[in-house]
């Protein structure tokens, strides 16, 4: 759910940034050799940013979950050995 929310936020922010770009474009485009370069690559960079940010969350949460599973396995073992005695 957290991830869904984040993707929504990210998407909305993407739209916002795009409009911001076109507003600023008039001044900044003069620095670029090709005026339409940013418009052409449009959405692809957003996807890359979203995927990268998602990877961070997945990796960190994945590690937490893996530690949790290992801990619960240990606790089962602890329970077994307690029964044993």
């Amino acid at each position: 759910m957290n991830l869904m929310k984040k993707i929504t936020v990210g998407f909305l922010s993407g739209v916002l940034l795009l409009t911001g770009y076109s507003a600023l474009g008039g001044q900044e485009m003069t620095n670029l050799p090709v005026g339409g370069a940013l418009a052409v690559q449009s959405l692809k960079p957003y996807w890359h940013v979203f995927i990268a940010y998602a990877i961070v969350l997945v990796a960190v949460l994945g590690w937490v979950i893996s530690m949790g599973r290992r801990l619960s396995a240990l606790e089962t073992r602890l329970g077994d050995s307690a029964e044993h005695q």
Binding site: G20, Y21, N31, L38, Q41, P45, Y46, H48, V49, A52
Partner: peptide, 11 residues
């Protein structure tokens, strides 16, 4: 947003 690299610089 960084001018030359654009959005992807956020990574």
């Amino acid at each position: 947003t960084e001018i030359r690299q654009g959005i992807v610089q956020r990574i």
